[in-house]
Simulated scan of single mutants.
Amino acid sequence: MTSNAEAGQDPWHDIRPYQDDEVAATLARLSEDPELLTALTRYRLPRLSRLMPRVSRALASWAIKRETRDVTSVAQFQQRIASYMQRMLRTSTDDFRVDGLDALDADTAYLFIGNHRDISLDPAFVNYALYLANRNTVRIAIGDNLLKKPYVTDLMRLNKSFIVPRSARGKRAMLQAYLQLSSYIRHSIQDDNHSIWMAQREGRAKDGIDRTDPAIIKMMTMAHRADNRHAPLGEGVETLRLVPVAISYEYDPCDIQKARELKAVSEDGGYNKSEFEDISSIVAGITGHKGRVHLRFGTPIDRSFDTPEAVAAEIDRQVLGDYHLFPSHYLALEALGTHPDLLDFSEVTDADRERFAQRLAQVPDDLKPWWLAQYANPVINCAGREIAP
């Protein structure tokens, strides 16, 4: 809990990313966290963790201390992550392309708001693009529903994540939590000149339909309106320097799991996640094959958009206009047999068809319609067509 002194000096202490003076203690805590050590050994040393769990945890603790022995700042921690990111790109992607970043001022902070397909990789690819361009990385908005384990919270906040409250109960508590969040976002952009990444909606777009929730825009501008209740919403939006970002994956390592969830929601009205399912999705997203990945930065949104709905519509226009459609998207639409007028095979090769067929063959028959829809829906969505529920 935050003390009254801390709250007065640092009103965002409970939700902000960790600062440099908190790095050493956090890394020491992580190196001794039994749950983290168990998770690491089960993933990296499965046989040893089963036969000699105490030995495997000791090895994992030693490895963490060795890897982080010279890390004393957030920037140094992220430099270590960048090396892992480069390795991941080499092993799990065929190509990574970035457009639009060179049109944005390198010394100006922006609030990047993007479509959301992968829990950790969407902001990770944004960060990697910024890192390659020698720009400062972003602070990342992450829902507290993902922070059920202390070690996950520590890792995320070390990596410049700040916490979005989704578990607050009661209208007054929610309003207070969102006002604090809005105040922190404004502080980061205007006072710290530090960019932020946020998703355009709560949760991943598991069905491949990218739409901005206007409630996100209301939250972002709450602090501005609290200072001046008569201020136009567009004024608050302009001060945050919102820049839409579109990310597109040729293949989603979590596509089968998403199809399973979509089927359950459609047929049973809901889906119950297992305790560690989000963590499993993070690991699968990082390690699974993604094919080609395309990231495009849009242009800042000005004050002429003066309602949450108008701002959301402009974000959607840019995200969908900048979204890169890969052969997998068109081949999925062809397999579904709908919207034949939208098919474009000009860049589809025989190798693309073979790779798509191999992926589809791994999908259980009862999940194939939901699996295909994930890839086909962006084609329909980008064309401005309505997608049947």
Rank of each mutant, 00 (worst) to 15 (best):
residue 1 M to L: 11
residue 2 T to E: 12
residue 4 N to V: 14
residue 7 A to F: 09
residue 9 Q to R: 15
residue 10 D to I: 10
residue 11 P to Y: 00
residue 14 D to C: 06
residue 18 Y to G: 02
residue 18 Y to W: 12
residue 21 D to A: 04
residue 25 A to W: 03
residue 35 E to T: 13
residue 43 Y to M: 13
residue 43 Y to E: 15
residue 47 R to S: 12
residue 48 L to G: 07
residue 54 R to V: 11
residue 58 A to Q: 15
residue 63 A to S: 11
residue 70 D to S: 15
residue 73 S to Y: 08
residue 77 F to V: 04
residue 80 R to D: 05
residue 83 S to L: 14
residue 85 M to A: 10
residue 88 M to W: 00
residue 90 R to F: 00
residue 90 R to W: 02
residue 91 T to A: 13
residue 92 S to V: 10
residue 92 S to A: 13
residue 94 D to N: 14
residue 97 R to G: 10
residue 99 D to I: 04
residue 100 G to W: 08
residue 100 G to K: 12
residue 106 A to N: 08
residue 109 A to T: 09
residue 120 S to R: 06
residue 120 S to M: 14
residue 122 D to R: 04
residue 124 A to H: 00
residue 124 A to D: 02
residue 124 A to F: 05
residue 125 F to H: 07
residue 126 V to A: 08
residue 127 N to T: 02
residue 128 Y to R: 07
residue 130 L to A: 04
residue 139 R to A: 13
residue 139 R to C: 10
residue 141 A to N: 03
residue 143 G to Q: 13
residue 143 G to V: 12
residue 148 K to H: 01
residue 152 V to I: 15
residue 153 T to W: 01
residue 153 T to E: 06
residue 153 T to Q: 12
residue 156 M to K: 11
residue 159 N to K: 00
residue 167 S to W: 03
residue 168 A to R: 09
residue 170 G to A: 05
residue 171 K to P: 01
residue 172 R to S: 10
residue 172 R to E: 09
residue 172 R to M: 09
residue 174 M to G: 00
residue 176 Q to P: 02
residue 177 A to N: 08
residue 177 A to L: 06
residue 178 Y to V: 02
residue 194 H to W: 13
residue 197 W to K: 04
residue 198 M to T: 08
residue 199 A to K: 08
residue 201 R to W: 01
residue 207 D to L: 02
residue 209 I to F: 03
residue 211 R to V: 15
residue 211 R to Y: 11
residue 212 T to R: 07
residue 214 P to G: 06
residue 214 P to R: 04
residue 215 A to S: 12
residue 222 M to L: 11
residue 224 H to N: 00
residue 225 R to P: 03
residue 226 A to C: 04
residue 228 N to Y: 06
residue 231 A to C: 08
residue 234 G to W: 07
residue 234 G to Y: 12
residue 236 G to Y: 04
residue 241 R to T: 07
residue 241 R to S: 10
residue 242 L to D: 03
residue 243 V to N: 07
residue 248 S to I: 09
residue 248 S to G: 06
residue 254 C to F: 05
residue 259 A to P: 08
residue 260 R to G: 10
residue 262 L to E: 10
residue 267 E to N: 07
residue 270 G to M: 03
residue 270 G to I: 10
residue 271 Y to L: 07
residue 272 N to M: 14
residue 273 K to A: 07
residue 275 E to R: 14
residue 276 F to M: 11
residue 290 K to R: 08
residue 291 G to M: 05
residue 292 R to K: 14
residue 293 V to N: 06
residue 295 L to M: 11
residue 296 R to C: 13
residue 296 R to P: 01
residue 302 D to T: 15
residue 302 D to M: 11
residue 302 D to S: 14
residue 303 R to F: 06
residue 307 T to W: 09
residue 310 A to N: 03
residue 315 I to R: 13
residue 316 D to T: 01
residue 320 L to Y: 01
residue 329 H to N: 15
residue 331 L to H: 07
residue 333 L to I: 00
residue 333 L to H: 04
residue 335 A to K: 12
residue 338 T to V: 08
residue 341 D to P: 01
residue 345 F to W: 03
residue 357 A to K: 15
residue 358 Q to P: 00
residue 359 R to H: 14
residue 360 L to Y: 05
residue 362 Q to E: 12
residue 362 Q to V: 00
residue 362 Q to N: 03
residue 363 V to D: 04
residue 364 P to V: 11
residue 365 D to Q: 13
residue 367 L to W: 06
residue 368 K to G: 00
residue 370 W to D: 13
residue 370 W to Q: 14
residue 377 N to Y: 11
residue 379 V to W: 01
residue 379 V to P: 01
